[in-house]
């Protein structure tokens, strides 16, 4: 076995790991970095529970070798609200709570991260676009209605925040920007993920 040295950024933190070629990204995130918010479902790219964001794109961490993430900028669900406070939650997370869009919760991290990349690409999606975007995130509690509502609600919240039209929206805007800025002061790469969106 030839170990491979891999450098990547995870939730704004640079990490260097010595990895064996067969190790999947999902196993490295969960097993080596302790980021168990990323869930392992089917292991074959069918369920979407292991979705993380790499370089602005939702990817399945069970269908990626960790060595392939060299130089990548990865965001897991932990990085979305790194201070762990309720106020610091991302608008999508708040909307999922408010809409009770969670049953067992296993699909939730993947669904939220997939939705984040959708809203970066399309801030005002139709319900159909939302459904298509989360088509690869399977909920076996079969609760799709509420996640769709939550994503649409978060989209509205984020648009309002972007326009700065209401006091409430201003508070939300601070909530979007604050966690990442607090966790990684001066870290350019995390900002880049948020700004770049999907190509």
């Amino acid at each position: 076995m030839t170990a491979v040295t891999v450098k990547l950024t995870v939730n704004g933190r640079e990490v260097e790991l010595s990895l064996e070629p067969h190790e999947r990204l999902v196993d490295v995130l969960r097993g080596r970095l302790g980021l168990t918010g990323t869930k392992m479902g089917c292991g074959e790219g069918e369920c979407g529970a292991c979705t993380v964001i790499m370089d602005g794109q939702a990817v399945l961490s069970c269908l990626m070798l960790a060595v392939q993430a060299e130089g990548g900028d990865i965001l897991t669900i932990e990085g979305l609200a790194p201070d762990g406070s309720e106020a610091g939650l991302h608008p999508l997370q708040k909307a999922f709570v408010a809409e009770a869009a969670i049953q067992c919760g296993y699909c939730t991290p993947g669904m939220i991260l997939t939705a984040k990349t959708l809203l970066e690409r399309d801030p005002d999606p139709t319900p159909q676009v939302v459904k298509e975007a989360i088509a690869g995130n399977i909920c076996r509690c079969t609760g799709y209605d509420k996640p769709v509502k939550a994503i649409l609600a978060a989209a509205a919240e984020m648009r309002a925040a972007a326009q700065g039209t209401t006091a409430a929206a201003t508070v939300t805007a601070a909530a979007i920007g604050a966690p990442e800025a607090v966790a990684v002061p001066g870290n350019v790469s995390t900002t880049t993920v948020a700004e770049r969106g999907e190509s």
Binding site: E46, G48, V59, L60, L63, E132, A135, G136, E198
Partner: peptide, 9 residues
């Protein structure tokens, strides 16, 4: 083809 997550890779 596949799911959005598959299509990204």
């Amino acid at each position: 083809l596949g799911t959005p997550g598959v299509r990204n890779r």
